[in-house]
Computed example of a mutant assay.
Amino acid sequence: MVLRREAFLDHVRERGKYDSTGEAERAARVVLALLGAHLVGEVRARLAAHLPEEFALILLNPLQSAEPLSPERFVRATAAWIEGATEQTATWDVSAVLSTAADAADDDLLGQILLQLPAGYDLLFGRPRPT
């Protein structure tokens, strides 16, 4: 299922409790650009296929990352890219965007995404895995 841009941003806005669609869009752009640097090949392309075109392109043309970031460093990187963000607000931003992306993807794809990421991202996607 591909979410329309408005529906995707509405979900992010609701989950992030943002005052405006612009805030939700800013969070989505940053988080997906960082996520895209951590996913490769077919998995990244499959997730992009579930996103609105504008956000799919951001995922497919990511910010460069020298190494996979732990969930904590991913949140810190998000905070660094969003003006006025703290680690606490960035955690909220990351979770709002990634849980919306997880809803767009099927369970099989989400499992493959989590295999490409360091441990702990399941919580950011709002899908805690049994330990």
Results as ranks from 00 to 15, higher is better:
1 M>P: 05
2 V>C: 02
2 V>I: 10
3 L>Q: 09
3 L>D: 09
4 R>H: 11
6 E>K: 08
12 V>C: 06
13 R>L: 12
16 G>C: 05
18 Y>H: 14
19 D>W: 13
22 G>F: 13
23 E>L: 14
24 A>E: 09
28 A>Q: 03
29 R>Y: 05
30 V>L: 05
30 V>H: 02
31 V>L: 09
36 G>I: 04
37 A>T: 03
40 V>W: 09
41 G>E: 10
44 R>I: 06
46 R>C: 02
49 A>E: 14
49 A>T: 00
50 H>F: 01
50 H>W: 02
52 P>G: 07
54 E>I: 03
54 E>A: 15
55 F>I: 01
55 F>Y: 15
58 I>C: 05
61 N>A: 13
61 N>V: 06
62 P>W: 06
68 P>E: 06
70 S>K: 06
72 E>T: 12
72 E>G: 11
75 V>A: 03
76 R>W: 09
78 T>E: 07
80 A>C: 04
80 A>Y: 12
82 I>A: 01
82 I>Y: 01
83 E>P: 08
84 G>I: 02
86 T>R: 05
86 T>C: 09
87 E>W: 10
87 E>S: 15
93 D>K: 00
101 A>E: 06
101 A>F: 04
102 A>P: 07
104 A>V: 07
104 A>F: 07
109 L>A: 08
109 L>F: 11
109 L>G: 07
113 I>Y: 01
115 L>G: 00
118 P>K: 04
122 D>A: 06
123 L>H: 10
127 R>V: 14
128 P>R: 00
128 P>K: 00
129 R>C: 00
130 P>W: 10
